[in-house]
Each structure stands twice: as structure tokens, then as C-alpha cells.
């Protein structure tokens, strides 16, 4: 910061001190709100009562990420992995596969497919995890930039994924730092891991349409 700017900043700093600095008040809601837990993850049901405020997103986005990972050779011990990861996002619950042939075709802003190839991970796996693979994603189709999930792989990204039987999910080594975190629910049938993660969150579509 240039000296003059700093002086100005200090002057502003002084000038702005008196009013509201310690005002930590906010539009807090009354604490007698009758709760309504829907019991389902992230369903946008108004959890407030009739006399309280509970904002609900104007638009929603359903993120669906699914695929299969086939371990080879069949029966093990496994030395390789191949598979696919598909990613689609639906705005306000509108899916392209409703079977309604009279409806307008739905053009998805995010419709991406990756090829996945992997080799056994030689580092330290998470507790109770097996098998653990170092995998590489290859973008096969679609434009990843149209997707909202900030954690999607880029083309040629390499991750370490592990199957956790106890929780029946694939865990991802976050940042390759030994931080194993939930990535996707799944199931193992023979030599094939099938996985699917789907959630609905809020999204701002107005900005994108402008």
C-alpha cells in the first residue's frame, strides 16, 4: 500500500470507528421456531413455522455422479482398474430421461463422461479400506466447465480412491494428504464397484441466464 493510501486508510479507519463497530446484531430469528426436520438430506422444505423466516433457494440443482469401476484380473489379486464416471446436473429437478417423448428435449449444462484407469496404490491406505487404487480420469465427452461441483476432476487428474466396506462407500484421499473423506456411496458385486452420489442443492440460475 502506498503511504498516502495507508494514511487515507487510517483516516477512514478512524472515521468509521464510532458507529456500529461493535454491532454484532443480525436479523436473528426468534428461538421459539417450531422445528421441522424432514429427515431427508437437504430437501428444501421450509423448516420454519408460519410466523418465522426460512429462506428456500429459488432454484435447485441436482448433482448426479455415478459409474462403475471394474477390478482386474477377475477374482484378484487385483493389479488394475478400469471404469467410467458420469456426471450430470439437473436444474429444478428437470431430468432428460423422464420418458416423456412429447416434452421439450432437456439440454443439460453439465453432461460429462470420464474414463477411469487405475493401478494399486502403494502408499498407506485408510483404515479398513481395500482395495485402494491410484486412478486417472480422462475426459471422454462433455464440457466440465458447465458443471457446478467444484470437486470434479480435471482431465488427467489423478486421485487415490479406496473402498470402505464398513460404510459401503468410496473414500478419496483429499489432496493426497492422507485425509480420507467420503466421496460416493457404492456397492461391490464380484469384481465391480458400482457407485452413485446424488444430492440436490441450491443454485443461482438468474445470473447465468443474463
Amino acid at each position: 500500500m502506498r503511504p498516502v493510501n495507508l494514511v487515507l486508510s487510517i483516516a477512514l479507519f478512524i472515521g468509521c470507528k464510532s458507529d456500529g463497530d461493535a454491532d454484532t446484531s443480525a436479523d436473528l430469528l426468534p428461538d421459539d421456531t417450531p422445528p421441522e426436520d424432514t429427515g431427508e438430506p437437504w430437501e428444501f422444505v421450509d423448516t420454519g413455522g408460519a410466523d418465522t423466516l426460512d429462506d428456500v433457494p429459488l432454484d435447485t440443482l441436482t448433482l448426479r455422479e455415478w459409474g462403475t469401476l471394474t477390478l482386474t484380473p477377475a477374482g484378484g489379486p487385483y493389479t488394475g482398474l478400469s471404469g467410467e464416471l458420469f456426471v450430470q446436473e439437473y436444474e429444478n429437478g428437470v431430468r432428460p430421461d423422464t420418458g416423456d417423448t412429447d416434452a421439450e428435449p432437456v439440454i443439460l449444462g453439465c453432461d460429462v463422461a470420464y474414463g477411469v484407469a487405475g493401478v494399486p496404490f502403494t502408499g498407506t491406505p485408510c483404515d479398513g479400506c481395500s482395495p485402494t487404487f491410484r486412478v486417472e480420469f480422462s475426459l471422454a465427452s462433455g464440457d466440465r466447465s458447465g458443471c457446478h461441483d467444484p470437486e470434479l476432476p480435471d482431465d488427467e487428474d489423478q486421485w487415490t480412491l479406496a473402498w470402505r466396506a464398513a460404510t459401503e462407500d468410496l473414500a478419496k484421499d483429499w489432496g493426497d494428504a492422507g485425509l480420507w473423506q467420503h466421496w460416493s456411496p457404492g456397492q461391490v458385486t464380484g469384481d465391480v464397484v458400482t457407485f452413485e452420489w446424488q444430492v440436490t442443492v441450491g443454485v443461482s440460475l438468474e445470473e447465468e441466464d443474463e
Binding site: 430469528l29 422445528p35 429462506d55 461441483d149
Partner: peptide, 28 residues
């Protein structure tokens, strides 16, 4: 409520980049 990307807020200077966010006025 969680959002993928920027929440639907008016007159808020929120970056429009891939990210997670939460936006709400709610009581647990």
C-alpha cells in the same frame, strides 16, 4: 441451505466461480 456456486442473492458481491456456499435465514 447449501448452494453449488454462488447463492441466489441480490446485491451481494459474491464471486461467480466454482465453489460451495451456504445462504439462508433459518433456525435449527
Amino acid at each position: 441451505d447449501f448452494f453449488a456456486g454462488t447463492p441466489d442473492l441480490e446485491e451481494m458481491d459474491v464471486p461467480e466461480e466454482p465453489a460451495w456456499s451456504w445462504a439462508d435465514h433459518c433456525t435449527q
